[in-house]
Design a protein around this nucleic acid. Sequence first.
DNA 1: CGCGTTGCCTAACGGTGTTAGGTTAGCGGC
DNA 2: GCCGCTAACCTAACACCGTTAGGCAACGCG
Lengths: 179, 179
Amino acid sequence: MPVHALSRLTPRAQEIVRAARQLLEREGPEALSMRRLAAQLGIRASSIYEHLHDKQALEAALISVGLEEQADLFAQAVHRSDAPIAALIAAYRDFARRQPNLYRLMTERPLRRDLLAPGVEEAAGKPLLDATGGDREHARAVWAFAHGMVILELNQRFPPGADLDTTWRKGVDALHGTS
Amino acid sequence: MPVHALSRLTPRAQEIVRAARQLLEREGPEALSMRRLAAQLGIRASSIYEHLHDKQALEAALISVGLEEQADLFAQAVHRSDAPIAALIAAYRDFARRQPNLYRLMTERPLRRDLLAPGVEEAAGKPLLDATGGDREHARAVWAFAHGMVILELNQRFPPGADLDTTWRKGVDALHGTS
DNA sequence: CGCGTTGCCTAACGGTGTTAGGTTAGCGGC
DNA sequence: GCCGCTAACCTAACACCGTTAGGCAACGCG
């Protein structure tokens, strides 16, 4: 269990990260610029650098928060269900659909792990790894399917009328008993 | 079978797109700017706009070329194998690893289908759809797994020592007989 | 009181995509 | 020969981006 991701930051930095998250989710990725974020806070862009080292650090903070929330949601999903893998996949899809821009930010580029809050990446992955009984290959295959479905859906790569619920169910069924 | 993707463009525009592809693959996505592309061609950025409407049109041309090449490679892979789905997935992974920056460009954002060469998207998808006997849900599940594996691998989301060949094999096996 | 820290500022640098408007070279028709 | 058209380039500028240097005001503390 990681320390709360934001707690490593100064209070003012936490406010900035919270504002950044609102901006990202409400106005999309192109709105997440240092200048627009600063405007939202009533200050100038250069002042942000007093609190966060650079834009990468800001993004890493957002990703840390996202991973932490995923860890919570996934742990709860497993806890409430007796079909843990299916429940996890449902929770995974749900997270991505509720916060598509944050999800994209979290996955679209290589992770700067040195900038993340320590432990959050492992914490987000642990529920699935447990649900596969510790089988890392199995967990990775399920994750790859879920991420592929989510991101292709977010990127509108499936035709408009596609029956994605069915595709999800088939994929989960097929990957369920892999050993 | 679509018309050759580049044939819709003027000869000069084709040269520009070819230079853009080299630049993208050799120097990475941040090198694909109008100014650096122009420099590569010995002209100024504004001159590119005489030949391509804007950067989106340039990217759409690159994506069209990529989809067309995928269509060819996938059709050949099926043709040479008696395990078409496994052969397709191997070809898919191979394409992405050989041209990671183009693959990223092709998949990282919603497609501007109105800017693509007509038919290329369908052509790239057809071999897999055929291999599943026309089962669209099955084809989509396989695609999602393959894309998820590829993009998580490109983004270095798996731990350094991860045995990805095994994960690929397990995923393919599991998704093979989905009905 | 003075000193260091915090939090903001202005101004600037080099980069991005893009547009307006101007110049040159070549070619077909008279 | 020359007119007009087109293709292909140019310079200059706009608004935006991330980032840095250097300055200023307010605060708590010894």
